[in-house]
Computed example of a mutant assay.
Amino acid sequence: MILTGGFMVAEVAGSLVTGSLALLADAGHMLTDSASLALAWVAARLTQRPANARKTYGYHRVQVLAAFVNGLALLLIVGWILFEAVRRLWAPPEVAGTGMLAIAIVGLVVNIGVFWLLHSGDRDNINIRGALLHVLGDLLGSVAAIAAAVVIMLTGWMPIDPLLSLLAAALIARSAWKITSQSAHILLEGAPAHIDSAQLMHDIPHALDDIHSVHHVHVWSLTPERVMITLHAVPHDGVDQDHAIMVIREYLRKHFDIAHITVQIERQTYCIERGPGIGERTHEHGGPRHARGAP
């Protein structure tokens, strides 16, 4: 955060002196990066807080919120770069290539250092990945600025500055959309990509001889690393309830690495299933069906 914020000041000054959009775009990006890195740090600290009576799952979701905010900030930056680049393509200003090159090289070194620091962290953590994408955008911006400066020094062709800014913006937009959509999916309690709830309802009874059927399956993520599931299971007659819960938990842990599993055992005449597909199915299990309204 300190490295990024400190160099951002130098880039702003350099862009004003040289007139480079690539430097100014990178400086604007680094400004939000400093804020995003601060947000990521605060989120990482809050995540370590223990659960309490009001936050029974703790503060793990803070990192997902931070990643979502960082992704939105990146998309806003991309929009601004696109607008400014198109405006400059119509009337390219003069850019001082030598000064631009010197500042861009220093920026590249700083961004490589920051990228290496973050890359050595937990790459499965969506919060760190969000911060890493910001820094990757900075790194691409520095590379674009270097390339633009070299072209300007060799040929004097000024449109290269906004053109390379457009290229960097397109690369940033792709990653920003991915991190934003993924974090939004988690916040909306969406099922992880590697788990199909409907298929799970089919697979568990076929894989486990003790289980007659499974329904009311709900799968979501607290964070990308912490998958959670609740389900209702109907074991076959004579199967011990604790044994049924144990075999289901072992199956889910082995095949899907699910950390938090809640299994409700049902032994009833029939139940109406409303699963992830919104459909209904009647399970008949043990004994005659009661008339409607009967206990």
Rank of each mutant, 00 (worst) to 15 (best):
Trp220Gln: 09
Gln182Phe: 00
Ala27Asp: 08
Ile265His: 01
Ser175Cys: 08
Gly190Asn: 10
Leu231Gln: 03
Gly14Asn: 11
Trp220Glu: 13
Ile77Thr: 11
Arg123Thr: 13
Ser20Leu: 08
Ser20Asp: 09
Ile278Gly: 07
Trp41Arg: 08
Leu252Thr: 02
Leu89Tyr: 02
Val135Thr: 05
Gly5Arg: 07
Ala35Gly: 08
Leu3Ala: 06
Pro276Gly: 14
His283Lys: 04
Arg253Val: 14
Glu94Arg: 05
Asp257Gly: 09
Val263Arg: 04
Ala131His: 02
Ser36Gly: 08
Gln268Glu: 14
Gln63Glu: 11
Asn52Lys: 08
Thr180Ile: 11
Phe7Leu: 05
Met246Val: 10
Arg249Asp: 14
Asp209Cys: 10
Arg49Asn: 04
Leu23Pro: 03
Arg289Gln: 13
Gly137Ala: 03
Ile278His: 14
Val9Pro: 03
Met228Ala: 15
Gly99Tyr: 04
Pro224Val: 03
Ile160Leu: 07
Pro93Leu: 13
Ile186Pro: 06
Met30His: 04
Gly130Gln: 00
Leu133Glu: 05
His215Arg: 07
Gln199Tyr: 03
Ile146Phe: 03
Val69Asn: 06
Val234Pro: 00
Ala22Glu: 02
Glu11Gly: 06
Gln268Leu: 15
Pro235Asp: 04
Ala148Val: 03
Ile211Asp: 05
Phe256Leu: 07
Lys254Pro: 00
His216Arg: 05
Trp220Phe: 09
Leu3Glu: 02
Ile186Cys: 08
Pro159Ile: 09
His206Trp: 05
Ala10Met: 11
Leu24Met: 14
His206Cys: 05
Glu280Arg: 07
Phe256Arg: 00
Leu75Gln: 03
Arg88Glu: 12
Ala131Ile: 00
Arg88Met: 12
Gly28Lys: 10
Leu133Pro: 02
Glu284Phe: 11
Val78Met: 06
Asp240Ala: 15
Gly130Asp: 01
Leu23Val: 09
Ile128Leu: 10
Gly287Ile: 09
Gly79Tyr: 08
Ala40Ser: 15
Tyr57Ser: 12
Thr230Gly: 08
Ala73Thr: 14
Ala169Ser: 06
Ala191Ser: 14
Val17Arg: 12
